[in-house]
Design a protein around this nucleic acid. Structure first.
Length: 136
DNA sequence: GCCAACGTTGGC
DNA sequence: GCCAACGTTGGC
């Protein structure tokens, strides 16, 4: 099972919104690299839900409930979307500053290509971030 | 097919 | 609000 990190601006769509809605279509991705990651997602894969712009922290975990399909918001039909549902909020959010300060996370994809709205998380990175959130 | 201009994202 | 990163577009 693969792990991911998905970014969302909380003022547009926050983790609380996801919990309220029960699930959401993760669309609007207009980047080829991010689209490749979306296509690689399998039902059951878990993803950290990260708040960009405001908050700058991982606040919860989401689960893929529907694999890549044509993005209904893309009239050209070039890009795909997935559907995700909330799993649980982290006990303690993990901030970007915390992640940057941890040498174990120095190679994270999200630092290499910080503009991507979706990026993979290695198993060791996943565990390290969970530990930082006070979960084991 | 190259490359400059432009647009978007997101941290600071 | 600024700026760096970087993908995309369009003229040649």
């Amino acid at each position: 099972m693969a792990h991911w990190l998905m970014k969302s601006e909380p003022e547009t769509f926050s983790y609380e919104d996801l919990v309220r809605d029960g699930k959401t279509v993760w669309d609007g991705v207009r980047n080829n690299q991010a689209a490749l990651y979306l296509k690689a997602m399998k039902v059951g894969d878990e993803a950290f839900f990260y708040h960009s712009q405001k908050g700058l922290e991982v606040v919860g975990i989401a689960r893929v409930v529907r694999e890549a399909f044509l993005d209904p918001s893309d009239p050209a039909g070039r890009f795909v979307a997935v559907e995700v549902a909330p799993v649980r909020a982290l006990k303690q959010p993990v901030t970007l500053a915390q992640m940057k300060a941890d040498p174990k996370l120095a190679d994270m994809k999200m630092f290499k290509q910080f503009r991507l709205s979706v990026c993979p998380v290695e198993p060791a990175e996943w565990k390290a971030i969970l530990a930082m959130a006070g979960e084991t």
